[in-house]
């Protein structure tokens, strides 16, 4: 952790102005990712996890906008870059893997052309070298007979193979950071395991930092080094994956983990968190989780908790404030 972080997000705030008022999709979140580290960002739909990824990569759909805070990539601020500059950063320094491999690839071009184009745009190499590199990448992501498959079109690949191509494309320019937004959600269970293993291996080898956005705790457990749990646009808890998964501190994380059915656990009922995540236009005062929290007290309803250091994690919960006699 002594290394300088590759990605540093400080007090990020993303807003969506609407006719009925401004919605805050991401509300004052901070985190960083070290080289070679996989940070899992997990949360339920509407928690703001994909929006955080989009903010980092500079692809928030207007009228949404970054309303505060900063995003730095290897020490350089990227949230205020002009569009053209940001376009160069994307692909060169940040690679992206999205949920649906079919829409991330252009159906009209061969995969080889798409990969070499990315390489040629961002790296100072000759077309022949780019071709060689593309074949190397395809081999690396486990595409059999890469030198032949390079001339195939996306529709000639199966779902799992296509996601491998997308990963090769994301790695094409040797980026420092990879944003993977639900990379396994559209895939079958047996393929999911393959893709997870692949992402982990490659990022380790390439020394790239990874921000893995997903709703699936299983994927996080398998892949991430640290994990940030998001709720209603805020980070509830962030810490080493073992701590968060095996000994969750925040009542939301705790409830979330308990509500996941597990093979081998034969309780008749699952633990459930009652209610639903608030809509963005109705986020409660104080801690956003307080109406659903079984441990909430007066302060939770009035005052928003800042992240507090608990063990190796940072937890935004008043239970851990020294003044409240928590388990500090």
């Amino acid at each position: 952790m002594a290394e300088a972080p590759i990605l540093e997000v400080k007090n990020l705030r993303v807003e969506f102005p609407t006719r009925r008022g401004t919605l805050v999709a991401v509300d004052d979140i901070s985190f960083s990712i070290a080289p070679g580290e996989v940070l899992g960002v997990v949360g339920e739909s509407g928690a703001g996890k994909s929006m955080t990824g989009a903010a980092v990569i500079g692809l928030i759909e207007p009228p949404g906008r970054i309303a505060g805070g900063s995003i730095s990539l290897a020490g350089r601020r990227i949230d205020d870059l002009p569009y053209e500059e940001m376009r160069k950063v994307r692909g060169r320094e940040i690679g992206a893997i999205f949920q649906d491999p079919l829409t991330s690839l252009n159906p009209l071009y061969t995969i080889g052309r798409q990969i070499t184009e990315t390489i040629l745009t961002h790296l100072p190499v000759s077309p022949a070298e780019a071709q060689q590199r593309a074949i190397g990448l395809l081999r690396e992501v486990g595409i059999p007979a890469a030198e032949k498959r390079i001339d195939h079109y996306p529709h000639q690949f199966s779902g799992g193979m296509r996601q491998r191509v997308v990963i090769a494309l994301a790695l094409a320019a040797n980026p420092k950071l990879i944003i993977a937004d639900e990379p396994t959600t559209a895939l079958d269970v047996s393929i999911q395991a393959q893709i997870i293993a692949l992402i982990k291996k490659l990022c380790c080898e390439h020394g790239a930092a990874v921000m893995l956005v997903t709703h699936d705790m299983g994927v996080i457990a398998e892949t991430a080094d640290r994990v940030a749990v998001m709720y209603a646009g805020r980070i509830a808890e962030i810490g080493p994956v073992r701590d968060v998964i095996k000994a969750a501190r925040h009542p939301y994380t705790d409830g979330l983990m308990a509500s996941i059915p597990k093979v081998g656990r034969t309780d008749a009922r699952l633990a459930q968190i009652d209610g639903a995540m608030p809509r963005l236009n109705a986020i409660p005062r104080g801690c956003a989780f307080n109406p659903r929290c079984t441990k909430a007290f007066d302060r939770c309803r009035a005052e928003r908790p800042e992240p507090m250091r608990v063990g190796n994690s940072d937890v935004a919960c008043w239970l851990y404030d020294a003044g409240q006699g928590g388990t500090r």
Partner: peptide, 9 residues
């Protein structure tokens, strides 16, 4: 979502 899945199950 998982927490909702638990409610429905």
């Amino acid at each position: 979502d998982v927490s909702v899945q638990a409610q429905i199950l």
